[in-house]
């Protein structure tokens, strides 16, 4: 059951990314490019995705997960170096290529060699991240 639901969720996510145009890097970069011909599509995608998810989060207060267990606990409203530095690095790469993790897998079958190289580099980045993450977790040395 758990695996079937994961397959269903991944499939819907992939088709959603495909039809929304989010596997087209020019649409992503067009949204980020406020000094160019600005393309608002990404805002519609985000808005569309947030609607069902808001309802889903509301339901988590009333029901249990279908497969049992509990829902992920809310995170504390704390900002740390990891969150900020990681997001800045991610954003820089996202703007550079117009791809993020979901669309890079969704477009793998039709994104050509460039898409494959991006995915390989992204997986390599994910592999080298844990030690960097640990270093950012250590306390800041006194200046």
């Amino acid at each position: 059951m758990r695996n079937l639901l994961a397959l269903l969720s991944g499939s819907l996510f992939g088709i959603g990314l495909l039809i929304s145009g989010m596997t087209d890097t020019t649409k992503v970069q067009g949204w980020l490019d406020i000094f160019g011909a600005w393309d608002p599509t990404l805002a519609f995608v985000m808005g569309g995705a947030i609607l069902p998810m808001t309802l889903a989060w509301w339901l988590t207060k009333r029901i249990r997960p279908l497969v049992g267990g509990s829902f992920p606990p809310a995170t504390l409203p704390e900002i740390d170096r990891r969150l900020v530095i990681g997001s800045v690095l991610f954003g820089a790469g996202w703007g550079l290529a117009g791809l993020c993790p979901g669309p890079s897998v969704a477009s793998l079958s039709y994104g050509g060699t460039g898409g494959m190289i991006f995915l390989a580099a992204m997986l390599a980045g994910m592999m080298i991240a844990p030690p960097l993450k640990a270093r950012l977790d250590s306390p800041v040395p006194a200046a």
Partner: peptide, 26 residues
């Protein structure tokens, strides 16, 4: 393009809802 974006976005949100309400995962 905006209509396709909104429709695809809704599917992405439903995908997230399936993973959350089904498996209890983000």
């Amino acid at each position: 393009d905006w209509i396709m974006g909104l429709s695809g976005g809704l599917l992405i949100g439903i995908a997230g809802a399936v993973f959350l309400l089904g498996n209890g995962r983000i």
